[in-house]
Amino acid sequence: MKLLCPGPTSVNEEVIKAMANCKTNPDLDPEYKIFHRNMEKKISKLLNTKATSFIMLGEGILGLEASIVSLMEKGERVLVIYNGFFGEGFADYVRFYGGEAVKYEDDFRHGINLEKLENFLEKDHDFKIATMVHCETPSGLTNDIEAICTLLKKYNILTIVDSVSAMGGEKINFDSSNVDCLLGGSQKCISAPAGLTLVTLSESAKEKIENRKEEIPSYYMNFKNHYDCSFAPFPYTMNENLVYALDKALDITLESDFANLHEKYASSTREVFTKAGFELYPKDSFSNTVTAVLVPEEHNSSEIELALQKKGIIIGKGVGPLKENIIRIGHMGQNINYENFEELYSSLDEVFEELNIKTNESLLELFKKTNVK
């Protein structure tokens, strides 16, 4: 199957070979610790920072929950900023661990409106933490985390950003963005196997952890156990195979102009669908990693998705209320190459003809006219 969905993404052969290595005992070999810490520095390099980065053994959702566990204390008010399906999910973690989640909902078809958020904060800014999503994959939106987090910093609010679907595919400067906790996943734009969470913390976030009144109510999800473990190199046995794979995937990402490549294919994808007569779901703040396209009213996402799968291509349909209303194309990580998208558009032309979905022009021909090659 060709993967042109919003992740997990295809994995490079070199990354697969790296994952096959079994070299040592990560618990006991001091050389492994050196290798591991150097790999973590590559995460920081990807984010243009020297801030502390580390990995956790578990898919990206682990990092989202762990960020609340580690940074929030019982009774604290947390501002949950969201304009998509995943952003609202932070409220559950806040509730699970005894915090007070105050939801701030914005339009799901637009990026977070900074002026409206500032008006809200002028009236109520008594929050210890604010959470948000960088790229909302269900709706194909990317929020301006630098503008939003800089605003929140004015009110001394610590910021947690889910960048699982953006890290590696969007340009990120951790320091200038004023993010305190940035969370990524191995299986999206970086194109390593699923199973690792990537975490980068500011000094302010580490100070918040150090100055807690109560202990962090977890061992596995305790951030400090990962960046300052006093009793062993790591808080648990690392999966060296996944770490070797991530190390190689980071090398490939850092050696290329990855963010610009994502931007190029995102622009091309939007151009193809709009010129073919489709409406994009977002109205602005378009993601560079996934494009969400509205399906004509008399059709549904599942029929397009299943017809493409029969041709050997996997794309995504909607999530939640949008489940049958949109299709999502992932221009993400190792999925991005000209041949993959040629095959995608050729197959979509066939599927649309089979389903009697009218287009202004062949998607394949429109793609060939874009400047991605």
Rank of each mutant, 00 (worst) to 15 (best):
R77G: 02
V161A: 10
G169K: 10
P235Y: 05
F231K: 09
C22R: 14
N143W: 00
I55D: 02
T142F: 10
E354Q: 14
P30D: 05
P217S: 03
S256K: 14
H262M: 09
L355C: 12
E40W: 03
Y93L: 01
L344S: 03
N21P: 00
D228E: 13
Y32L: 04
Q334Y: 15
I216Q: 00
G87S: 04
G75C: 11
K358W: 10
G333W: 00
F90A: 04
L117C: 06
M238Y: 08
T253R: 01
L121T: 08
P193D: 12
E365P: 02
K153M: 05
G185P: 07
L196I: 14
V15D: 06
S67C: 02
M132N: 08
L196Y: 11
L254C: 07
L250F: 02
F286V: 06
H110Q: 12
P138V: 01
Y338R: 06
D257M: 01
I314S: 15
K103N: 13
L183N: 11
E14K: 14
K317W: 01
E350P: 02
K42N: 11
D247M: 01
A266K: 03
D349C: 00
L121E: 01
K2M: 15
C189G: 05
V161K: 07
S218C: 07
P321Y: 09
I112H: 03
Y220T: 15
G111S: 03
L62F: 15
E170M: 15
T200M: 06
I252W: 00
P233W: 02
T9P: 08
E353Y: 13
K264L: 14
V133E: 10
E76T: 01
S285V: 09
S191H: 06
G99T: 03
R95P: 05
T289Y: 06
G87E: 08
L366Q: 08
S347N: 12
K224C: 09
E353L: 15
N21S: 10
Y227H: 05
E73K: 02
